[in-house]
């Protein structure tokens, strides 16, 4: 921090205040360290004191099994990552189309509005697992499509469900853009589509970025559900390894890998949200 005038020295009053704030900070750090230690010790005593603690440790936290199962589970996670990549692209495209369809005005667009509303209602209501079964076993059963990998149908099911949620997020963003922005754009002669693309959507996306990233985090772990279709992803691989070693540690390994996958996005979400909040309350300390 630069000080405005070169001959300025903090007054005794200010120095005393600074010293007080410093003592307060030190005290706060000590208190938080102390309380964390207490909580950790209590948790340890409670968990280690349970009658089955030893049995759980050997069947869920066996280091040798973890090391042996790791390559297979990691290989499975690579499939999850690919599914996540294509699903995310699909979700964004479908969700934007749905959100825009729901905000269209005029009687001509009633069927579009109705279909979009029905879609979001249905796919937000049905459990993902049921959509996975219906899409993964039902659609190939029609015999209409060439034989596809289970991961393909899993991706489709995830896109169907998540685009319904994300469409609602986009719609909230579109409606949060102040009508005067639309007015200003139309007054300049931009047509409806140009106004939507160049003025409304860019602002809408900025407003809902934290919510979108949160949905992405949820999707990162839900890609693990494609294992029910038989795709050998991280969860399925862990299941196979568990059966092989007769030990549950591979599931823990898969869980940790999913956390590692989600963690950067989670931190990024918090950072983005914090930055947006900081921008909105410039100059405030509360």
């Amino acid at each position: 921090m630069t000080e405005a005038t070169s001959d300025w020295r903090p007054s005794a009053l200010e120095l005393e205040r600074r010293a007080f704030r410093k003592r307060q900070t030190t005290r706060s750090v000590l208190v938080s360290l102390g309380s964390t230690a207490v909580v950790a010790v209590v948790l340890w005593i409670v968990v280690a004191g349970t009658p089955g603690a030893q049995a759980v440790r050997t069947s869920f936290f066996d280091l040798d099994v973890a090391i042996a199962a790791f390559p297979a589970v990691l290989e499975g996670l690579w499939l999850n990552l690919r599914v996540l990549f294509f699903a995310a692209i699909g979700v964004v495209i479908v969700a934007v189309v749905l959100a825009v369809a729901r905000t269209l005005r005029g009687p001509v667009f009633f069927p579009l509005r109705f279909l979009a509303a029905a879609y979001t209602d249905v796919f937000r209501g049905v459990p993902l697992l049921i959509v996975l079964y219906l899409v993964g076993f039902g659609l190939p059963g029609l015999g209409l499509f060439p034989r596809m990998d289970p991961a393909f149908w899993g991706t489709i099911a995830i896109v169907l469900v998540y685009s319904a949620y994300v469409a609602e997020v986009f719609r909230a963003g579109i409606e949060a853009v102040h009508p005067s922005q639309r007015l200003a754009a139309r007054a300049l002669g931009l047509d409806h589509g140009q106004t939507l693309r160049r003025v409304v959507l860019p602002q809408a996306v900025r407003k809902v970025t934290p919510a979108l990233m949160n949905d992405f985090v949820a999707m990162q772990k839900d890609v693990g559900l494609i294992s029910v279709l038989g795709a050998v992803d991280a969860v399925r691989a862990a299941q196979i390894e568990t059966a092989h070693f007769y030990n549950y540690t591979p599931y823990v390994v898969a869980g940790l890998l999913f956390i590692a996958l989600a963690w950067p996005t989670i931190r990024l979400t918090d950072w983005v949200t914090g930055r947006m909040r900081a921008r909105e309350q410039v100059g405030s300390i509360v």
Binding site: Q181, L183, A187, Q203, R206
Partner: peptide
């Protein structure tokens, strides 16, 4: 307009 209505993005 009264409120300028510039595009903030």
């Amino acid at each position: 307009f009264q409120q300028y209505n510039l595009f903030p993005h």
